[in-house]
Nucleic acid binder design. Structure first.
Lengths: 238, 238
DNA sequence: TTATGGGTTTACGTATACACTAATTGACAT
DNA sequence: ATGTCAATTAGTGTATACGTAAACCCATAA
């Protein structure tokens, strides 16, 4: 999983490997929700869409299987990973624990430069909250957490955290639109920053965990509201 | 990463997919150290070895790339992932934090049945220490930690922990042969079990982290001893 | 002796063809 | 009308073939 987004982070070079381009495209479409969970991914159909043969499509799908974004169903092809509400909550809880783990180490190890960079980012987010700019805050949020990852000075841990976070990106944005979640999110960031400034990694860790779990709870409320209004379609079942 | 060992955990059925069998075989060979880091993996050569064509071999290699066990080098094929000592220590530290995270949740959530199962396992390890049976203790150790993973009652977290642990399996066994590491390892397990029995997840977590970092330190000493005696070969470089 | 250039070769990346499994559909019997 | 069985078909899994790019080697010149 470590390398899943390494290539995606590189340029959009069309000269890259076809199988990698297909993998990145599918990754984006799944993470963004353009490909809904449970929908079948047919090899020839994807090959036609990307103007390629089945070979690179197959390799892309196999990589997505390992990264957990799609699931194989025997010989019946692959489907976009079906996330049950329980599994989504499990992933959010894991993400909360991982973030808590990272911020604890980061607090003890970050350089003054990294600290000032984080403070600068945090200050900049105030305007986004005032403007209720969800997209801007979502982008800031991503950078904010990535800065904490790298401040652990443990590249492997940073990759792991990044992977977990990436797999939740499809849900995070919807969560931010819930009520005044943005404002609360920034307040929680503020409390975390305070603990970091005091060099109290344990407190920063606890606050980060609570912060992430609050985000998960906001998402849960959001989902339950939608389930109440729309009957769940159950697009594909055994 | 999540699904990396899901298939490996299944039976050794030869009827399974050829690409999966190849992937599992290569995974085992890399994890066990049979394939040393830095060695090139040629597609046709592997195809001949497994009596298959290049197609399933390529798919297996692509999956190993995502799981981080091998690295691509432009068009020059893939090589077994080159682990620098720094990266290995990063992985051990991450593993330590992940284990600490798991045992904390597990302490709060495990059922009486899971607790008694863990106690039973721990008791059984005493005889292995007395007999200095490294292989048996290594196998026990794996089950012991997996029980803690599942006791988190968070399947996603359990998978993540399992993946991190699996990627270190090649080093863990050598580490156990260092001095009287086995006896100390069991003593540390004992302290962890005590905290679990008292329902003190925070203490269990701290002790687990220390336990894992001790294992990493033992490995480091072991590696440094070997580096001192043998000049590092540097089998393949840029 | 060393550096550079071109030719050769090897191996990857992709396309296409074939095999085989399993899902689907239709017919027939109950 | 419904259930079951067989035939068809659609789609995956694997093999093979082809194009291309990079590495290697050797010859030649400075």
């Amino acid at each position: 999983m470590a390398g899943l987004f390494k290539v995606a982070a590189e340029a959009e070079e069309d000269g890259g490997l076809l199988s990698d381009r297909i993998r990145n495209a599918l990754t984006d479409e799944i993470a963004s929700g353009a490909l809904v969970a449970g929908s079948a991914l047919e090899e020839q159909q994807l090959a036609d869409r990307f103007g390629a043969s089945r070979t690179p499509v197959r390799e892309a799908l196999r990589q997505l299987v390992v990264s957990g974004l799609v699931e194989v169903r025997g010989r019946r092809g692959v489907v976009v990973a079906r996330m049950t509400p329980e599994r989504i909550m499990d992933m959010f809880e894991t993400s909360a624990e991982v973030e808590a783990m990272c911020v604890r180490l980061a607090t003890y190890r970050m350089t003054p430069l990294e600290r000032s960079r984080l403070i600068e980012l945090h200050e900049g987010s105030r305007a986004m909250v005032e403007a209720s700019d969800v997209d801007a805050y979502d982008a800031f949020n991503r950078v904010f957490h990535e800065c904490i990852y790298s401040a652990t000075h443990n590249s492997f841990m940073a990759e792991q955290a990044q992977d977990v976070r990436a797999r939740l990106s499809a849900f995070r944005r919807t969560q931010l639109r819930q009520g005044d979640r943005i404002r609360k999110s920034r307040d929680e960031h503020d409390a975390i920053m305070q603990a970091i400034a005091e060099g109290d990694g344990e407190t920063a860790s606890r606050r980060m965990r609570a912060h992430m779990l609050n985000a998960a709870a906001a998402l849960r409320r959001y989902i339950e509201d939608r389930v109440r209004s729309v009957q769940s379609p159950e697009p594909d079942d055994v």
